[in-house]
Design a protein around this nucleic acid. Structure first.
Lengths: 202, 202
DNA sequence: ATAGGTGATATAGCGACGCTAGCATAGCGG
DNA sequence: CCGCTATGCTAGCGTCGCTATATCACCTAT
């Protein structure tokens, strides 16, 4: 019977595709966990293969190469960063509070997930940005910051001001993480930055 | 004759030391040039050895490893960055102009020498910073920015404010270089940043 | 001038890396 | 039940940073 045969084929196909998708997620999860616990230099294709209990070449049937795996991890990171920034922003009351909450959430994310943040911004340069074909998850984080900055833009372009504020947060996160700024003054620096972008207590 | 012998030994010693120092500089220069023309991924120890026309192991009689060579390049970069920022600052008239000049000089440096800037901030994490034993060249650049920021500090701590401003410049430079901020709005972003740190036209 | 000693340089190789070619095998369709 | 497809494996290629060992040139002292 063709209909039964088709259904059978379909189900085994879907099962296989499901298993394939699961394994792909396993790879990404293993890469992320390994990077977060031992750093990206410990993430090798052999190590990843051992982690998912498959041989090394199967990675290349899922991803074009190691950098594609890192990019997949980065995409996960962008989703989570957007979530955390959104949560912080919506929980805040006033305009200035919202900006401070966003800034704190952002830098906290970078500090608490350094390997993930590295994948997003230091590696994975092939990820498109600020262009029409930018994936949605990549824009979401920016839009969250935009929401907090926009009320403070006054005569300035909100988008450009958001870019500037975002860059400041990124710079703070990067320099702090490499030990180039004293860690104990982190709160002071954030306060000063907020003060410059939201002068009056609103 | 012991005196003649000593003198002979000294001169050959000093000649050797001079040659050694020259070769060491050759290594650093080769690494820098190779990185600036083909990127750091093209800088391999074999490639460097070929460039200075010596065998690979001689590199390890000068430097502990490849990362030490990159650190040496980074130190050169810090010296030059400090020079350029100082030149820009001393050429400026008013307070706000000085801040703008410093900001432009800094981001221009990062944009025009991306490989050098990468060595300074993305690689070479082992370079000590913000600690008592920080080498002088590393502090000079910071002090230059401090000179421009200090008059604008008002009630805020000048050092912490400088750290914050510096981080903003660093973030702008990094995000622009990876294509995450549109290049054509670079001037706009700098203007907005300057406006936030030096509100009134002084 | 020459033998002895010392330091500097090169050859060769180690283990690990990202990645790929080619083979075996398991599971499907007819 | 047979043949095909495609999936995953073993093995290996070229390159990486780095090092152990050998060789050789040069300086010292007789």
């Amino acid at each position: 019977m063709p209909s039964n045969a088709r259904i059978l084929v379909m189900t085994t196909q879907t099962r296989r595709e499901r298993e394939r998708a699961q394994r792909e997620q396993q790879i990404v999860a293993a890469a992320r966990e390994l990077a977060e616990t031992e750093g990206w230099e410990a993430v090798t294709t052999r190590r990843l293969a051992a982690e998912i209990e498959y041989s090394q070449p199967v990675l290349y049937s899922h991803f074009k190469g190691k950098s594609a795996i890192m990019t997949a991890v980065a995409v996960q990171g962008f989703e989570e960063l957007a979530d955390e920034v959104r949560a912080a922003r919506t929980a805040a009351r006033g305009t200035r509070d919202a900006l401070a909450a966003v800034a704190t959430a952002y830098t906290d994310f970078a500090r608490k997930r350094p390997a993930l943040y590295d994948a997003m911004f230091t590696h994975a340069v092939d990820l498109s940005f600020a262009s029409p074909n930018t994936p949605a998850h990549l824009r979401n984080g920016f839009d969250e910051i935009l929401q907090a900055v926009e009320p403070l833009a006054a005569d300035d372009d909100p988008g450009i001001l958001t870019e500037t504020f975002w860059a400041s947060l990124h710079g703070l996160a990067m320099l702090e993480r490499s030990g180039r700024l004293p860690a104990d003054l982190r709160g002071h620096r954030l306060d000063l930055l907020i003060g410059r972008f939201a002068p009056e207590a609103t």
